[in-house]
Structures are given as structure tokens and as C-alpha cells.
């Protein structure tokens, strides 16, 4: 019979942001993991090229859009981080060359 084990602390894992390794906890959003790494901006605006990151943090404002695994326009505040994700700064619409 299997003995009861105490609830394990969730094991951290890593993903990359613009090539840099970032540590995340299971259940953490991409935005939360980036904040914990001291990163506040992961998008540049379409017209002014200004840096943006999480603002409303509940999926309403769309300021936190990032390119995740090659797909642009992902809301980093809602998207759970996964081991091995490749997150890059989204330039403009994310479809610009």
C-alpha cells in the first residue's frame, strides 16, 4: 500500500524570454514569472514603439501581449507558463518582419 506523502512544493521550471532563462512555478502566468525575474516590458507598441507589459493583469487590457512559441498576441497575464516555452518581445502587431 502506498503511504500518504505530504503535499510536495511545486517544482520550479524554466522557459526563455528573448533568449534569457526565466524560472517559473507551476500555475504561474508568463507575466507573473517575468515580473519575478524583474522584467516589466515584453511588447513594443505598433505606432510609437513604446515598451509595454502587464497593466490590468486580468486579461482585459491586452497590453501584455507577447509572442509565445512563435505565436503572437498571447495575453501573458492569462497564459500559464510551461516548461521550455520560448517567449519573445512582440514588436508591433507581431506579424511585422
Amino acid at each position: 500500500m502506498r503511504s500518504r506523502t505530504p503535499r510536495a512544493t511545486p517544482a520550479p521550471f524554466t522557459f526563455t524570454f528573448d533568449g534569457r532563462r526565466v524560472t517559473a512555478l507551476p500555475g504561474q502566468s508568463v507575466a507573473a514569472a517575468l515580473w519575478c525575474a524583474g522584467i516589466l516590458a515584453w511588447r513594443t507598441t505598433r505606432h510609437g514603439g513604446a515598451p509595454r507589459g502587464a497593466f490590468c493583469a486580468i486579461g482585459t487590457c491586452f497590453d501584455c501581449l507577447a509572442t509565445v512559441n512563435g505565436r503572437p498576441n498571447r495575453r501573458a497575464c492569462l497564459l500559464p507558463a510551461r516548461p521550455g516555452d520560448t517567449v519573445t518581445t512582440q514588436q508591433g502587431t507581431g506579424h511585422d518582419r
Binding site: 512555478l25 502566468s29 507575466a31 507573473a32 514569472a33 515580473w35 519575478c36 502587464a54 493583469a57 486580468i58
Partner: peptide
């Protein structure tokens, strides 16, 4: 509210 959400849900 966002800061609170990130702290409570994301520990950030």
C-alpha cells in the same frame, strides 16, 4: 487590482 491579482495568483 492587477497588482493584487498578480501577487495573489502569481506570487509576483
Amino acid at each position: 487590482g492587477g497588482a493584487q491579482a498578480m501577487l495573489k495568483g502569481g506570487l509576483a
